[in-house]
Design a protein around this nucleic acid. Structure first.
Lengths: 226, 226
DNA sequence: AAAATCTTTACAAATTATTTATAAACTCTT
DNA sequence: AAGAGTTTATAAATAATTTGTAAAGATTTT
């Protein structure tokens, strides 16, 4: 059963949406403002978000940006504002679709189906431990062991190593790595990557001059072989 | 540079769209009906398709269904029809977005960006491995094996070999090879090709004086036989 | 406030791509 | 079959770009 989060501060709207969506066998939860929406995203882990634009505190565009920092959950924006400028702003903030009120419920449902269809299957939160070659990763504890002994990694270093590990053997382009660890807005910042690859190597490689685990493919990216 | 295919039988529409999209650094091609659209999808391999609904022969919805049988390229439908039923039908046929005419060009551009952003990267489509004769190409790892052992290729060398491999047996003209690896602006620079063919041979041929894999067809081009 | 982490900058080192020069090979004409 | 004119092969030099590294600011966390 797919989960949908509705974000709107007008109860009559959320009530209508909830009823229609529930009737089509979606599991629905609602939030009335941006803050609680972000909280619900964490706890409820929805497959799709439908949000209003104008809300107290954090508006819908702000909300899109916050969500996009962490995840790629499809977002559909609903709004009474039909101005082109607003639409462009919302879409560029990370929204996947923008529907102007008033709208037909059948259209909304079709757009929900379309958004869910093309969404990447939610990568299940990796809880099991990965172990291969000289490496061992404990996700729950965020611990990494190399050749039997633990090494301390900063959060970003950990994310980078995990992504490399999950794609071991493959060459990952700079853009992909940046998108995975820093977010889609950072794909043009290869300096970050260089620095962090360097730091990681310092911690995991034995022979500094000849990396064994993190191999560089010049002009393309990096490849990890545990 | 991302490639967009526009499908519409009204020249004044395609002209406007082409101009706007080209100005934003997309490579644009057009088709006037469903049949030629499918053909262009095969040859041009666009990253996104913008299509009208009402066209002679195959309508837009039919086109969506045909494309979805083979690929997941994002499709944006443009139409004068604002009825909800049509929108639902198009979205359920595989369209990713539906824009009602008349529309603002800025909105269209924003929706194009949104659609491209969430599209699965094209590179992942060529994920299958090629293997024949003495050669083996692993795309994900960007590795090439000749007679069982790995050889390291630079990006341009890799691109060249892949293109040769994909067209093995055929004679490829210099112009075609240059266009495929360096881009359409380099078709008059056969020196590049000579140097890189030479480098490739150095890495893959056993008998340097008598190339076995990359054969030259004087005055025409090269032919690859794995 | 201190520590840890992340971001930014600068520059040397490494790698690849392009250009150039020259010798060798090929086809066509005679 | 020989020679002219062109094309192709190869090596080496140059240019352009990318990568590695250290270290100095920012920012965030403890």
């Amino acid at each position: 059963m797919q989960k949908i989060l509705i974000v709107d501060d007008e109860p009559q709207i959320t009530r209508v949406l909830r009823r229609s969506l529930s009737a089509h066998r979606y599991e629905v939860r609602t939030a009335a403002d941006g803050e609680s929406a972000l909280e619900t995203v964490r706890d409820f882990a929805p497959d799709l978000i439908i949000t209003d634009l104008s809300m107290p505190e954090m508006n819908g565009i702000e909300l899109c940006r916050e969500i996009r920092k962490k995840s790629e959950i499809p977002i559909i924006v609903l709004s009474v504002k039909g101005e082109e400028k607003t639409k462009v702003e919302a879409l560029d903030a990370g929204a996947d679709d923008y529907i102007t009120k008033p709208f037909g419920i059948e259209e909304l449902l079709a757009r929900v189906r379309a958004a869910l269809r093309r969404a990447p299957q939610k990568s299940e939160q990796q809880t099991e431990n990965l172990s291969e070659g000289d490496f061992e990763v404990n996700f729950a504890a965020r611990q990494v062991f190399v050749r039997g002994s633990e090494i301390h990694l900063t959060p970003k270093e950990f994310d980078l190593l995990v992504y490399l590990f999950q794609n071991r053997g493959k060459v990952l382009t700079h853009r992909k790595l940046l998108a995975a660890v820093w977010g889609a807005d950072y794909t043009e910042q290869p300096e970050y990557l260089r620095v962090f690859i360097g730091n990681l190597r310092k911690k995991i490689e034995t022979n500094h001059a000849e990396p064994k685990y993190i191999l560089t493919e010049p002009w393309v990216g990096y490849r990890f072989t545990p």
